[in-house]
Amino acid sequence: MTDLLPLIVAKYNYWLYVILMMIGLYAMIAKNNLIKKLVGMNIFQTAIILFYVSIGYKTDATIPIIQNAHGGGSHGAVIHAADYINPLPHVLMLTAIVVSVATFGVAMALAVRIYQRYQTLEEDELRMRLIDIGPEE
């Protein structure tokens, strides 16, 4: 037990991210409702964000905002890299979150458009309606 715990603590974040990702991917592929698929898409994207943020974490380090920047030692203090969490993954993930929100908004707009036209969001029903319209154009 004492040996197992460090091993689990060392990696569980990565394992759970894979599980989260699989949940999202499953929802995107197998769900029938378009909005459910959208939720799956969002879960999928957050799983990636979780992965990146996990990369950046360092034990015994503080958040990536320089301490005492305006207080006591403004210029004299030396900054040790080991004291601060890696800022780069955070930056990347800010961008990724923004992109995912943008995609979410556009997809919602598309879903509303589809509902206006077909009065349903279920994929199988949509397929039936498309057959009713007839083949091309």
Partner: peptide, 26 residues
């Protein structure tokens, strides 16, 4: 009639593609 649906499907697949790429970069 069909473009929004085709586009939404493209959204799903496109997001999977882009996310895989992002994951690879990670």
């Amino acid at each position: 009639d069909r473009a929004p649906l085709a586009s939404l499907n493209y959204v799903f697949i496109g997001v999977i593609g882009a996310s895989f790429y992002l994951l690879g970069v990670g």
